[in-house]
Simulated assay, not measured.
Amino acid sequence: MFKNLKLKQKFTMILLVILIVGLSFCGLSLSLILRQNAEREIASTGLLLMETMTSVRQYTNEQIKPELNEQLEREFLPQVIPAYSATEVFNNLRSKEKYGQYFYKEATLNPTNPRDKADDFETEIVEKFRNNTKLKEWQGFRSEPAVDMFYIARPLQITEPSCLECHDTPERAPKTQIKNYGPVGGFGWKLNEIVGAQIISVPASAVIQKANQYSFLIVGIVSIVFVAIILLVNLLLNRQIVRPLKRITRVAEEVSTGHMDVDFEQLSNDEIGNLAKAFKRMKLSLEMAMRRLKRPPGNTNTGNPSNYGNSGNSGNYGNSGY
């Protein structure tokens, strides 16, 4: 089938195959690269949010809690708890469309508020930080029944002695805290101990969707450029190769039928031009050969054979004196 195609069709088919193979390879490579870029971009946003929550915790611990310590003896105010403040601020942020898909949790092994209790997966992350205190960040994907999640986590370490006022022993904790949460959870913490992890997560589909958006855009641009190249190559091929070859073919067909008044035009010095030049020489050689064939036989006069008899009279031999 390929042998029966014209030159232009063959080139077009080859270029289309290159386009398909190139786009397939480009698509796979871009998908991987752009997914990594999307992960970094989402992780960067997550880290920014995490830094914001850390600042909220610090502000609550240093500015809010000292002002309300006396009131805690009469009424428990969850707003003085850094974890509560950070979680509430983040929930307010989630009302914004930009952050609507993000989730924040201070997953703690032994929390005061049961909602902060680390599940099995989160416990593994906390244990990673506890076993390797040099590890400051961890990220990856988590499979859940409803949806896969991309997460980024940082250790939650007790660095302020004031935190132990509520988390050392039940005796030191405010009575209103014991009244609200009981004397069991959230006690026994130590200074510089890693008690949990700040975890920000987002559906993995958000990462994939973001990567796909970039992939479709780039592949679309590459496709348009490649199609334009194919059209340009076809145009140049038609002008520089196909048309000159058609002219040479047409002239050769006319010469083959005896029309010697046509001529092969050499319009360039490339291979096509050299081909036309060779055909032109062949035509000249053919014309010379045809003229020789049409020329009448040459008159090569070597004398009349009867003249040989007149070179002497036979009767004279008798008079020679012999």
Rank of each mutant, 00 (worst) to 15 (best):
F2Y: 13
L7Q: 04
L7Y: 09
K8Y: 01
K8I: 10
F11C: 07
L16A: 15
G22S: 07
G27E: 08
G27L: 05
G27N: 14
L32Y: 11
L32T: 08
I33E: 08
R35H: 08
Q36A: 09
R40E: 08
E41I: 05
A43E: 15
L47C: 00
L47N: 15
T54I: 05
Q58I: 06
T60N: 06
N61C: 01
N61I: 05
E62W: 03
Q63S: 12
K65V: 01
P66F: 04
L68G: 02
Q71E: 14
E73M: 09
L77M: 13
L77S: 07
Q79S: 13
V80S: 03
I81E: 14
A83V: 12
A83N: 12
A86R: 06
A86N: 07
E88I: 10
N92Q: 13
L93R: 03
K96H: 05
Q101R: 07
L109C: 03
N113S: 06
P114K: 04
D119F: 01
D119G: 05
E124S: 13
I125W: 04
E127D: 07
E127Y: 06
F129W: 02
F129R: 02
K136Q: 14
F141H: 07
P145Y: 11
Y151E: 01
Y151P: 03
A153L: 00
R154V: 12
P155Y: 01
P161V: 09
S162P: 00
C166M: 03
T169D: 05
E171N: 06
A173W: 04
P174K: 10
Q177C: 01
I178W: 09
Y181A: 05
P183C: 01
V184M: 06
K190S: 10
N192C: 01
I194F: 02
V202G: 02
S205V: 08
Q209D: 15
K210R: 12
N212A: 07
Y214K: 11
V222P: 03
I224R: 05
V225I: 15
L236K: 12
R239L: 11
K246R: 14
R247Q: 14
I248M: 14
A252F: 02
A252S: 15
S256C: 07
S256N: 14
H259K: 15
H259P: 00
D261H: 09
V262W: 05
F264E: 00
F264T: 00
E265I: 13
G273R: 09
L275W: 02
K277G: 10
K277W: 03
F279Y: 15
A289V: 01
M290D: 09
K294W: 02
P296G: 06
P296D: 11
N301R: 08
N304A: 11
S306A: 13
N307V: 03
G309Y: 12
S311C: 04
N316E: 13
G321H: 05
Y322R: 09
